[in-house]
């Protein structure tokens, strides 16, 4: 009795397996998994859309999060084909794990930082110096997140202008270390925080925040590198998307979302 049931079960499983095999045999587009920094979300959605229009046989699947998180996911075995990071450091993390395909590695964009405040706010913030005022509710990205690292670099640079105590005074106002740049944006847009530091590209995507400029002398140029992941299951397709992002068409899309030219970066990974 049991044996017969077991046989029926095995047969059922075999049929299921056969069915699912058939399902994948139909001409579904090849999926290219692109792991991209959270700040690239909107620009990469647009780029993926335009790319797919040219390559209907390919489908770009975007996975966006903090670059540090993506790097760890890939190291842990996530099936990534392309990795686009918001800083060199996380690309290096991947390279140290032997997962970067050096031939495809390139810098493809740059970004700047800006202070954001809620569109309607009772707190007066006129510039970087205002961030040190006692009692301010400031939200930054965590130090491990690229934008969090850049934000702290800006504070260090500002010591030259506002004194050696400036970074500590600002960091004392930090109420939360968020997981990625979008979380910082949300907390400020909702009015939970009085101010935050994000990329200019993210700030531009929200109507609920106002921008307070960080002068060039104190600002940091965020450099965005990308690479094909060495373990990519679809190396050809991955290479095509990397090439597309570096092509004039891909660059034009990135530019339209406020990203700077890779040349502005200067630094090499």
């Amino acid at each position: 009795m049991l044996m017969r049931n077991l046989r029926a079960l095995l047969l059922g499983l075999a049929i299921l397996a056969g069915l699912s095999a058939c399902g994948s045999a139909t001409s579904a587009p090849t999926q290219v998994n692109v792991f991209a920094a959270a700040s690239l979300t909107d620009a990469f959605q647009a780029a993926a859309h335009a790319f797919q229009a040219e390559h209907p046989e390919l489908e770009i699947v975007l996975n966006t999060a903090g670059s540090q998180q993506l790097a760890q996911q890939i190291i842990a075995g996530a099936p990534a084909d392309v990795f686009a990071s918001a800083n060199i450091k996380q690309l290096q993390v991947l390279a140290d794990a032997g997962l970067v395909d050096a031939a495809t590695q390139a810098i493809f964009a740059s970004n700047r930082l800006t202070i954001i405040v809620p569109a309607q706010s009772s707190v007066s913030i006129t510039g970087l110096a205002s961030l040190a005022q006692p009692g301010l509710r400031l939200v930054l990205a965590a130090e491990a997140v690229p934008v969090g690292q850049y934000s702290r670099e800006v504070l260090q640079k500002a010591r030259a202008v506002y004194g050696a105590e400036f970074p500590a005074a600002v960091l004392a106002n930090v109420r939360s270390n968020e997981q990625n740049v979008r979380a910082v944006l949300s907390k400020v847009a909702l009015g939970e925080a009085d101010a935050g530091i994000v990329y200019t590209t993210d700030a531009a995507s929200s109507k609920d925040v106002a921008l307070i400029d960080i002068p060039d002398a104190l600002n940091v140029v965020a450099v965005y590198p990308l690479t094909r992941v060495r373990t990519s299951a679809h190396p050809e397709a991955a290479k095509q998307f990397v090439d597309y992002l570096l092509s004039p068409a891909g660059q034009a899309i990135l530019r339209s979302y406020g990203f700077g030219a890779p040349a502005a970066a200067g630094a090499q990974p």
Partner: peptide, 24 residues
Amino acid sequence: IIFAGNFPGRTQTMPLAIYLGFEV
């Protein structure tokens, strides 16, 4: 993490620290 945010000693509970620690 959404409502209370993440700050050591104030709102960073063990699950939040585990999540961040995973990355760092």
